[in-house]
Amino acid sequence: MKRVVVALIPYLWLLGLFLVPFAIVLKISLSDVAMARPPYLPQFSWNEGIGAFLSQLDFENFTFLTTDDLYWKAYLSSLKIAATSTLLTLLIGYPIAYAMARTPEQWRATLMMLVILPFWTSFLIRVYSWMGILSQEGYLNQLLLGLGVISEPLILLNTKIAVYIGIVYTYIPFMILPIYAALHRLDNSLIEAAEDLGCSRAKAFWLVTVPLSRNGIVAGCFLVFIPTLGEFVIPSLLGGSGTLMIGKVLWEEFFNNRDWPVASAVAVVLVLILIIPIVLFQQNQQKQQEAES
């Protein structure tokens, strides 16, 4: 009995923190915008009954999303930014994780600590400090000007480059940690065996190390890709006007147009898009578990 209760708890979390809010958002996405408080109709009332309430819902807001190219362009641009950032994070994160796994045992805990350390400061403050670093009069420009590398300050803040820097910086621990976990378990004698059998170091890395850290790579990529797709804070603080992302479009529907139903429809579609990588991630995790047991 006790076991059933313990097993139920995560499902209750899922129900309370994901399914119920999602059902509410879905309901709003099927309503119509109105001058009211809150600004949509119909609002559920027990007097009218559930049947009458449901009959007033329709898919109008979803068809509306197809009439304007803004929405698919924003989804596409978000996907592109998320994919590029994931790749960049992987390219930078992998060598870090590799170096960490190769350092002598006694240093690893300290290195791990350094990767996690930024989480002790608020995420928002860290993004703000990037504004201080990247601005035209910021530390980076002052340093480069002082060293004589550049003669004119670089415009970095409010560009796409700043967005990528912000995203890579913020999410890189999520890439390093799973890859490190995979590499750290790697049996060194496998590489020695590969080298004994005539592999060069680089070849042994490609043929042995990379495939064996595959699960870590996949987990890291999903952990970076999924939150980046809906990212709103980093592009709005570091990005310029040209950075089109779905999080921003959602904000505008909600705040500027006061159109909660369309905003909810945008959010529902975003969840549907995210379900694909989440399901893939889940399958990968399962496979990994099966392989281990």
Binding site: D69, L70, K73, S241, G242, T243, L244, V249, E252, N256
Partner: peptide, 8 residues
């Protein structure tokens, strides 16, 4: 306004 800000 969105068109103006983002170009699309």
């Amino acid at each position: 306004w969105t068109r103006v800000k983002s170009g699309t």
